[in-house]
């Protein structure tokens, strides 16, 4: 019953068209509904939880996720998943996801929705103000240090490599040395 990747693709109509060999959609019995993932678009991804690095397939239709399951061609997990990986679908279909920037003012008891533009401008101004106020070109010994000890950052092992690289580059350009993340704890 092991389905090859090729068979899987054929079955769900991802990339290969008409002829279906071996695992074909045989005339379905009366009870068999059309398969939910038939003709859905497939995108491969890697699980965002632990560092085993299992492969998943995200099935989408009409720009929305309709199913997620293990990638049978991934040499590590071979289509299998643990409970966290199997739950990927609910990272998308989730009422708790925050989808608008939020702001909490000094002394406030609540969040309020704000725009991206406003948030980013505010943050840029704060970075500059704090950096300017705390920047050290030289230390007490008169050595060049060009840093700020007034801003710190933690995170993120949840970012992609490219983002990690960009993030450290950006933070270091602002002069941060208090840069830490999950690897330290």
């Amino acid at each position: 019953m092991e389905l090859s990747r090729r068979g899987f693709l054929q079955l769900s109509g991802g990339t290969i068209g008409a002829t279906i060999v071996g695992v074909g959609l045989k005339p379905a019995a009366a009870y068999a509904e059309p398969l939910a993932i038939q003709y859905a678009k497939e995108t491969t991804t890697i699980c965002p939880y632990c560092a085993v690095g299992c492969g998943l397939i995200v099935h989408t239709r009409g720009g929305e996720v309709i199913n997620t399951e293990g990638d049978p061609d991934h040499p590590i997990n071979r289509g299998t998943l643990c409970s966290k990986g199997a739950a990927l679908y609910q990272l998308r279909h989730n009422d708790n996801r925050i989808t608008e920037p939020l702001y909490r003012a000094k002394g406030s008891k609540e969040w309020k929705k704000v725009s991206w533009d406003w948030s980013l401008d505010q943050i840029a101004q704060k970075i500059k103000a704090t950096r300017d106020a705390t920047f050290m070109e030289k230390n007490a010994k008169g050595q060049t240090v060009n840093r700020t000890d007034g801003i710190a950052s933690v995170g993120s092992a949840a970012l992609d490599n490219e983002e990690c690289y960009l993030f450290q580059k950006l933070l270091r350009s602002w002069g941060l040395v208090y840069i830490e993340h999950q690897a330290r704890i």
Partner: peptide, 17 residues
């Protein structure tokens, strides 16, 4: 039964590591 009728493994079986 929908998966099995279409030649796939049941979802639980496929997931089992």
């Amino acid at each position: 039964m929908d998966r099995v009728a279409n030649g796939l493994q049941p979802a639980c079986v496929k997931a089992c590591p």
